[in-house]
Design a protein around this nucleic acid. Structure first.
Lengths: 219, 219, 219, 219
DNA sequence: AATGAATGAGCCTTCATTCAT
DNA sequence: GATGAATGAAGGCTCATTCAT
């Protein structure tokens, strides 16, 4: 009875007449493709082929390739910010809170390579597309505020040194967590991939945590 | 009219019959274009248009677009390594040597944005083109050896803590210096560009130096 | 984002459930668009966007783009003929009647550029769509008959020369009145727009009237 | 031996490696297509298919569809002006010169329907593309100057009335000669095609000549 | 060593139109 | 009577590359 399975119609869609599902499907695959190849390196056709739809639908829902890219970028940022918000640090002692934040950031970036790659891509474009997305302008102060509160508390408790800039501290955490994912290919090509094995990454995380602690702790 | 016709315009060239100059011209503009737009985002035509040559010459000298890209990448690495070698640290006290190395790296990355962007591009391609360049496999151990010597000397002198991994240390220096350039666009879009003014960058450099010092110094 | 997405935006309509109003709205904007851009140059979407309806409605009411175009053409002719009928010349002395008719035609064409442009468009299509409209075949003899009567009366009164062809005379009046509107763009691009200022047009109208008078008057 | 004739290669071109011939071929067919269908109504593919070349070559030589259209327009005007210049009227008596000019214009427009249709098309576009062609701005005063000289001579000789505007006279000649071709389709659809038979056209030409004579002659 | 002419393949996008309710 | 979702077919155009000399 193998013929039953074989007689496939031209297209099978679970989401027929379900626009939200189509949109979500497109967005998911577009995220993956843009993350893999960048904006210029991605073919609209490739995105369409990965789902059971036509190129036409992509333009139907997102206007053009750049519109799709912008939406991908926006949703990626929204998801990341959402995850960050779930991290509740407010009750914790300052140093513990900071360590937890660093750990979270390091792990989170590692688990979301697509996001990292989209951000790399945006940097290649000098943030051009990001600038056009209004919703991004609001959420970013939150993370700085959170760090501010931790630094203040730490300073007051005498465990952090005085005068730490939350912005610079955030920059530092970001740099180490981001680079770990973004530059993995070239770094391991140049210096081997010892740092990127499971143990290597755990050790590196510890190293990063210590680095941050050393940077902030009172002497 | 036919203003937009594709047919190659007549050209006047100062370097007529000077193959090396043509090659160098192509390479220079290709570096700039690939750095700006990445591999997929760059048009062979755009490179040709920037110099007084035809697209045809690019294929004549470099085989294909990827061949040109590979050459660009290789030369960029060669130039960077050359600059690194000029930095003589061997006679200096360990901490001073380390600080000087960090300072140099931070400044050097800042001054060579094209190189940084080419490396970003390579990471988008998972280091694919880099892997094909044999000359790169040799030079990279030097920088680790250099750091090894500094760490050893520092440990012996009692100013560095014991057991520092030169690889991790290099990774740390690279991460902070690289991210500063690579993610400038998205970081300033998200958090303002205070860190990227002249003073901001000087302060950040100090911050990075202190970060490294804190990480290595004996307690 | 999805700002450019094609999916029909939600609409608010004052004429909800009023089919005649929808039809009239579509027709009005279609006339304007077809007059501006011709059949091939007009987008169904553009017509729909100008009113508060969906493309779907256009097909619902008019079958297809050509059906809409045909209807536009038909209505345009009907409106023109209606205006012509309002002009009552029968009691007037022949020369006065003729002058009034010329004046009317010249002014009327000037005021109805959309109609002129639709006729230009039809001529580009060699009258293809016009041929399919049955209602047009009837009304056109009226204008010739009218001229016939004027010529007859003029001849009988001795003020017109004998043997004037009403068809040729109509052709002459049409040519001058039509060209004045249809070729304004190219003519003024070539020879300046002196003839198309308010005074220029008034002078031109006098010129045209004299031209017709010279053509018909007995010597 | 029919196989010899049948084994046709994919493309036969007489002009292989002869850019001017390719250009000319494209231009000729493009003129014909644009004249027939207008800018929007013409398919680049259709032009390519009519000659033994690919769409690609059209873009190679003319940049884009509009570039081709502009070139077509420009060449069409150049050819027309060239023909006009060949008409030598300077020695003739004024009325004879004028009649000859009218006759020439009427016949010439009739013989060059493609040109008329291109001008119609330009008027649909409000002269947009014409404006971009610099070479057109110069040649057009010639025809007015020519008429000026005729009018002056005619007036001096006492056969023309005083104060004729050469511009208005040219407008009149143009209108009648242009409309004859441009509006043939709609006019004959509305009023029959009696005027457009060979005899009809000859009679109409006489009518037009008389119309012009009546307009200028001294009383 | 050098080059003007040519090109196949494929890109993003648009168009009028129909489906399914 | 009305509509949101969907689409096949084609449209103009661009890309890296090769041909022919």
């Amino acid at each position: 009875m193998a013929d039953k399975a074989e007689s496939t119609p031209k297209r099978i869609r679970s989401w027929k007449q379900d626009p939200e599902a189509v949109r979500a499907d497109i967005l998911r695959e577009a995220t993956s493709e843009f993350a893999k190849n960048g904006l210029a390196g991605t073919r609209v056709k490739d995105i369409a082929d990965r789902i059971q739809t036509s190129r036409r639908m992509i333009f139907y829902y997102f206007g053009d390739k750049e519109g799709l890219y912008r939406t991908v970028l926006e949703e990626a940022y929204i998801n990341i910010r959402k995850a960050e918000e779930d991290l509740r640090l407010d009750g914790l002692p300052p140093m513990e809170a900071l360590v937890k934040l660093v750990e979270f950031t390091f792990d989170h970036h590692r688990r979301n390579e697509d996001f990292i790659r989209l951000v790399m891509s945006e940097n290649i474009h000098n943030g051009h597309y990001m600038e056009q997305i209004e919703s991004l302008h609001l959420t970013n102060t939150k993370v700085i505020n959170q760090l501010s509160r931790i630094c203040e508390a730490g300073e007051k408790a005498g465990v952090f040194k005085a005068g730490i800039s939350p912005l610079e501290l955030h920059w530092q955490i970001s740099a180490l967590s981001f680079f770990n994912v973004s530059n993995r290919a070239t770094f391991s090509n140049n210096f081997g991939n010892a740092l990127f094995s499971e143990e290597g990454q755990n050790a590196l995380k510890e190293y990063v945590i210590n680095c941050i602690i050393s940077s902030v702790k009172a002497e």
